[in-house]
Design a protein around this nucleic acid. Structure first.
Lengths: 157, 157
DNA sequence: ACCAATTTGGTCAAACAAGGTCAGACGCGT
DNA sequence: ACGCGTCTGACCTTGTTTGACCAAATTGGT
């Protein structure tokens, strides 16, 4: 525990914990100056430490008045589930593989069955039969997006 | 939230919300003076934040007694976010339209800013530059799925 | 009525102010 | 010597702000 990235990480987490809102807002330039490093270092920290898998969402804006905002998700994400999503969903996926993945996530307790139903509805809903190749590509993207959202979101009451 | 444009935007929205009529009326020069900026800055704010896509209509008049009037398109007293998603997201959607929709949902209180950040992360993350046409189609599907999920599953209290 | 001056707002391109990317250098542990 | 995580710098993209110049209404003098 001693790299610059680690220090920047803890600094941001400190701000996040002590700040009044559920998020931190910083400027890349300013942060880089504070730690005397290249601005792109900040991006490195963001992309290695403040990822969705680790329970953060980052929002940025360029131009005058630009900023970097980091939100902490409410719950610890299901990391094993997320891992599985990354491994299983490639550039395209067929229906059966998608269903299997959802089932496996339910099995391992990462998804409850109501959420699973929502995922199925979202993914299979708008499918068309034309161009199965294209459908596979779209299915992969929708599935990944929807699952990531679900796995980083606390279950409903 | 730091740029001048942001401040002008919130000022106008404040006037809209607190004012007695369903619209605000201001003078470009006067507004520019209040915020100590070039008058054309006001046009920039209008054209980037008070567009029809974001639910506003602007009417102006030149000459003596000229004015700028901003109307809020009030979505009928229960145009739900869900309904809006269906109306706005067709077979394909470009990035700007997607941003506008998200902004509008935030504006109407259907999404808070953390949820909006999650949606953006899910929708814009895995985009590629190749084949913008295809991206538009995929974006529409992902956006619809993700928004439906979010709106169907409001943050718990 | 007519026209010129005046008072508004509109446009557009250029300058400015962020942040993003990516290939490669660096450095430390094995 | 190798590999992996860090770190940097040159170059890129996007959003904001300004200023010079344009167009439309109104006003007031004739």
């Amino acid at each position: 525990m001693g790299s610059l990235s680690d220090y920047i990480e803890s600094y941001l987490k400190l701000l996040l914990d002590t700040g009044p809102h559920g998020f931190v807002e910083v400027q890349r330039r300013e942060l880089a100056e504070r730690f005397r490093c290249a601005p792109s270092q900040i991006n490195y920290v963001l992309s290695t430490r403040f990822t969705v898998e680790r329970g953060y969402v980052v929002e940025t804006r360029r131009g005058g008045g630009g900023y970097i905002r980091i939100f902490k998700l409410d719950d610890e994400p299901e990391t094993s589930g997320i891992q599985m999503v990354y491994e299983s969903v490639g550039d395209a996926i067929d229906r059966k593989a998608a269903e299997d993945l959802i089932a496996r996530l339910v099995d391992m307790g990462a998804l409850d069955c109501k959420d699973a139903a929502c995922v199925r509805a979202a993914v299979f809903d708008q499918e068309s039969d034309e161009d199965p190749e294209l459908e596979g590509i779209i299915r992969a993207r929708v599935l990944r997006a929807v699952l990531m959202l679900m796995l980083t979101r606390p279950p409903m009451e």
